[in-house]
Design a protein around this nucleic acid. Sequence first.
DNA 1: CTGAAAGCGCTTACAG
DNA 2: CTGAAAGCGCTTACAG
Lengths: 336, 336
Amino acid sequence: MKNKTNTTSTQVANLAGVSQSTVSRAYLPESPVTEKTRQKVLEAAKKLGYQPNAMARSLITRRSNMVGIVISNVTTNPFYPEVLDLLSRKFQENGQKVMLFVVHRDQSLDDILPQLLEYQVDGIIITAATLSSDMSYECERRGTPVTLFNRYIPKSNASWFCCDNKAGGSMVAQFLLDSRHKRPAYLAGSEDTTTSIDREKGFLEIMNKNGVDTLREVGNYNYNEAYAATVRLMERPDPADSIFCSNDIMAFGALDAIRSGMKLRVPEDVSIIGFDDIPMASWPSFNLTTVRQPVRDMVDASVEDLISRIKKPENPPNHKVIMGELIVRGSSRIPI
Amino acid sequence: MKNKTNTTSTQVANLAGVSQSTVSRAYLPESPVTEKTRQKVLEAAKKLGYQPNAMARSLITRRSNMVGIVISNVTTNPFYPEVLDLLSRKFQENGQKVMLFVVHRDQSLDDILPQLLEYQVDGIIITAATLSSDMSYECERRGTPVTLFNRYIPKSNASWFCCDNKAGGSMVAQFLLDSRHKRPAYLAGSEDTTTSIDREKGFLEIMNKNGVDTLREVGNYNYNEAYAATVRLMERPDPADSIFCSNDIMAFGALDAIRSGMKLRVPEDVSIIGFDDIPMASWPSFNLTTVRQPVRDMVDASVEDLISRIKKPENPPNHKVIMGELIVRGSSRIPI
DNA sequence: CTGAAAGCGCTTACAG
DNA sequence: CTGAAAGCGCTTACAG
């Protein structure tokens, strides 16, 4: 293969017999060019295989038309591939390119964001991870808007859009009480995530209000840990009669532990409820009662917010919490 | 939030009392600068919050340090989020940024690749999709190497790295025969994918050699379609006694159809075998016998190939087919 | 409408 | 080692 060779606007200009500026104008929608010269340019461009260089354009327009997406958990929770799919689709529809960073537990965003800024992204969406105040400040200083997806930071210049996790937890609690459960358990996700904390908060608020004691275990949003935690919950002298898992993947772990591991029945012996409503939740093998996150609305809101703040940097950040919906399936007993 | 403002090397130069070129050199590893001036520059840079502009750098070095990843099926098959995760991690470790495109059935790569080229990516990896010869030619003309992941094109300038899909199909066929199945079925993925075609080819080769007739249905790599296809396979007067599904997700659909839908037993009534070995395959609910794709090796080979061809554009494309491994679990009867 | 010129923020020969 | 200058490939005032 030959070395990198790019046709430039000057070469096209020479062939078309116009100036380089005219070639440039031929590619700009609102520019003043007669249709005739534009055709002449486009023809020459085609002959030479010319395409404008986006780097050079970005350099001078101070707009890269790239946004950064930072995501994690992409292999451990099917919810995130869906979020990524929707986000990137929306940006593509808007003509924005996506620079992607997949982060892992051992990586700090403080090393990632500077790389995004170095490439002059116009804005950043952060999913399933949170922002240090240093970085938040740095983005603000540079004028690069940041939007958090399903996370929030009390005071910062970032926008955020979350599922109403607390209300979701409360809905589950109320549903469990209505269906006469006496010994509910909360299976927490990662302890440092606001999602798990808020779901638990909402859940406990209702349980406490009704004077019901709850059990608690931690599953770190992970199938295997949830499986083990469920075994612990069930081997107690006072086992749980229902488990609210902070995401669907953990609920599957709980389900498998109860049915395959302990040979108990769902929902007769134990009710299992999840959170997310990923597509698998409706598969017959799981048939999971769960809280559906309004992913589409959350994605739409995030992208629209980011784009509007890219266009008008003076716009203040926005925050919104969007209600989820309880989807009742066969993994839980139902109110009579 | 204020408007975009970037500190430039010239400002740093002024503060540090050196020339702009010296500031530039301070950021280049191999450049001749005394440690003392470098420190002076870095200090000034820190004070001003300076960071080099990657766009300007790319423009002049003719290397963007960005690679394009084109991926699809990211929500329908957990195999691909894993591929994406591994690919992007490897590139990040190599200091390459990733420009991501998630494509859908209705989108042609012929619209995507020009966007990647416009942004001067140094190379492109295409996963779960294939390349038109026009585009292949265009990339070659521009000197941008392309690597296909688990796809191939007979003659083109692209590299490719695949699982040995044909051998995988043969392994499954032999295993099914060894465990005395008499009426095997092949459940095809998308008909236009080489992965499904090759797995079927290998499967049939062994079956034919042994004079065994096979059934066939199409599931398009999709859970629901596989569920329906399985029902058809079992409702025949001569139902299948084993189903080789062209990926794991379809195998789950088959499993659910057989157990939840038709109340038959696996593996006593029917053996189910998949392909991929995604993490869920080992969950107790599925406990799926399947062919494990050597994802890590495939990813490593692809990334290394792309990087080496970015460095040396004169290197010819490489092709490699890597053997998978049959993972025997509980969804299939075993040879006696 | 069209062209000549300046300039975006860098890297890199070329001198010194 | 360091600086002045050219130039990467564009866009965009400024004249005409």
